[in-house]
Nucleic acid binder design. Structure first.
Lengths: 252, 252
DNA sequence: AAGTGGTCTAGACCACGCC
DNA sequence: GCGTGGTCTAGACCACTTT
């Protein structure tokens, strides 16, 4: 590709006066993206190609790219390159339509992959949530979910076996919601949701194939049935650039 | 202080085998923090002091510090040093008690500073929200809010003057909520809240005195009265380590 | 004035994706 | 096997805070 020949990506020299150098580079790249001046797969030129003809150190280029990544404009695929981010989906934790349904409704293509499912024993933490003795049997489930083939979240779900005996025998690559409802007659009356900006580290970063330390959003949801029993406890880790959370409620 | 003499902060050499070097440094520092091995103001040794005796480049130390910062464990004061982060406050956007009230309720000390207040003309964006013609008069207000003397958010609020004529004449360093209610008899019936992990840039980063590009949380709240009129439109930018969002609702 | 983080350079080697 | 980003070193100078 001509774009990738050894000339600098932008036509004018980068302004060095006044503001920080890496922020100038950021603005140039952001401008090129906004102008749509990119191959249609959204891949940016490589870091070393961005350097050519500029006299700028690679570290400075990378600083600019990190800035754009933090802003959610671009993301990286490990050792592959930098790409323009697709738009985020809107997530409404107070609605009880699942991931598969609201992603589709927004014209995007959802996909779920079950990483593992097994019976576990309640830890102290879980025993407090489910109000069961430590060591009680619980179902646990780990899934990775995709939008348009990009991994956007990993989650660990815990379900009370008393409410859904034999749950793990079902395919859980679809909507857990609808299985609970149609097969077990369990429906959710109340949600408690906690959200916290976080860094993706260790298992979660690995699961999303991102570098440890990238920003993410941690969503913890506890669902109750009409009798106030905990139906489902869910910990999600999202890519920060994949989601907007929207809550629409009466005032309490 | 003895801690700041030219010996390394940890006693054993850092393990180089296996995992990434900067992650080892991260783990060492995280361990020391968890062990409470710090002066009580929470200030870490300087980057150059952390290097001493280790043979580790300053850039690598900084990478470890950035990691901990992204995780919310530490934060920096520009050109002063790195400090251990205080615990976050819980923010419930569906409750209509204001910042001053819920921060106090959590045993922390809230403070509000009004940066400016003035009448503005409705932009296209605002005209759509308030359902008024472009150019209509609106009240706008910019504030910075603190918890225990650390700036944690900046916000810009827009209010419909028809619902609160003369609002800008009042001191707005306290609760806007209670002024609207007690002085103007305006109360909120419904909230629409959007949240998005973001990078703090430009004016918002400057307002919080953080480096541009640090992770933050963008909260946009639109409040309606019982007749469905927009009472207040609020854009907040939070430090990412200062807040946990909690939503507790019935399912719709 | 001394110390701090903030920025930048100019290399080097590595692990891994992609062809 | 080549190109990519990922990691790391060893300096340097600057702007700002702190003392």
């Amino acid at each position: 590709m001509k774009r990738n020949s050894a000339v600098r990506w932008w036509s004018k020299p980068i302004a060095l006066s006044g503001q920080m150098h890496y922020l100038s580079v950021r603005d140039h790249i952001a401008g090129r993206i906004a102008a749509g001046d990119l191959p249609k797969d959204g891949k940016l030129p490589s870091e070393r190609q961005l350097q050519t003809g500029t006299g700028i150190a690679r570290g400075t280029i990378r600083e600019a790219l990190f800035q754009l990544e933090a802003e959610g404009l671009i993301y990286r695929r490990d050792r592959s390159g930098w790409y323009v981010s697709p738009p985020p989906v809107v997530y409404n934790p107070t609605r009880w339509d699942g991931f598969m349904s609201y992603v589709s409704a927004q014209g995007r293509s959802p996909m779920t992959e079950t990483l593992w499912k097994r019976q576990i024993k309640a830890t102290q933490h879980l025993s407090g949530i489910f109000e069961k003795p430590i060591g009680s049997a619980l179902y646990a489930l780990r899934r990775r979910r995709y939008i348009d083939d990009r991994a956007v979240l990993v989650e660990t779900i815990v379900v009370d076996p008393d409410l859904a005996p034999g749950l793990l025998g079902y395919s859980l690559d679809g909507s857990l919601t609808s299985i609970l409802k149609t097969v077990f007659g369990v429906s959710v009356a109340r949600n408690m949701v906690r959200m916290r900006p976080c860094a993706l580290v260790k298992a979660d970063a690995e699961g999303l194939k991102v570098k440890s330390g990238l920003p993410g959003l941690n969503v913890v949801r506890t669902s109750y049935d009409a009798k106030g029993r905990v139906v489902e406890y869910d910990e999600e880790y999202w890519r920060h650039d994949a989601i907007i959370v929207q809550v629409d409620t009466g005032v309490t």
